[in-house]
Amino acid sequence: MGLKSIRCIAFVLAIILTHGCSAANAPKSAAQENNIDLLVLEGNADTAYKSGHLELAEGLYRQLLSYKKDYAPAWFRLGNIYTRTNRLDAAVNAYQNSISSDNEHAKAWHNLAIARVRQATDVLIEAQNHLVVDTAAKDRMDQLFLELMRIQSAKNQGPKVASYENL
């Protein structure tokens, strides 16, 4: 781990450990009881995400979600992290949680579809190890695989298929 990464982690941890303010008579939330400023936590998660520190960002988003379970933007970013690290089942789950919290979150719907297409492609690749060559079933699977690959390769040619990374 480089010096820059260590400094980034130290900075984020220092901010997380700072105390938040709360009204004297107001009931405390779990975040307030643990002296967590959720805006700072989200800002730190976003900074780690945008700078490519995905492991750190994942941990911070998960911490944020422990206090705000239905927070669609955090679920969406987790979905993006899981997609980028090829954890497609986790990505699907995260996008579905984002959609459950905000069913008009178009980017989450889009990225859920992309993750599902990638899962389907992985299934077809695995099927190649188990199908008998020169059968009608194998030919249909090959055609489907080629079509899915064509769709996925189109993402480099325009925004229609590209996944959304930023919110």
Rank of each mutant, 00 (worst) to 15 (best):
A120D: 06
A108V: 09
F76D: 04
I125Q: 09
A137P: 00
V133F: 11
Y82E: 09
D89L: 12
H130C: 02
N129T: 09
V133K: 13
Q119L: 14
A127Y: 09
S101C: 08
N97F: 00
V123H: 08
Q96W: 01
V133I: 14
H105C: 10
V117G: 02
I125W: 02
F76Y: 11
A94E: 01
Q96M: 07
R84M: 15
D139H: 14
F76M: 07
S100D: 15
L88Q: 04
A74M: 07
R77I: 03
F76S: 08
A120C: 10
A113I: 05
H110R: 12
N111C: 08
E104C: 00
G79V: 01
A108P: 05
R77D: 06
Q119W: 02
L144D: 08
K138E: 12
P73N: 07
Q96H: 05
A115S: 15
W75S: 02
A127F: 13
L131K: 04
L131Y: 12
I81L: 06
V92C: 08
E104K: 12
F145G: 11
V132F: 06
A108E: 07
A108G: 09
D102T: 03
N86A: 13
E104S: 12
G79K: 06
H130A: 11
M141R: 11
R87F: 07
I114A: 10
R84S: 13
Q143G: 10
A127K: 14
D102Y: 03
A91Q: 01
I99C: 07
N93H: 06
S101Q: 06
N111S: 07
E104M: 08
A91F: 02
I114W: 10
A90E: 15
E104P: 00
Q96D: 08
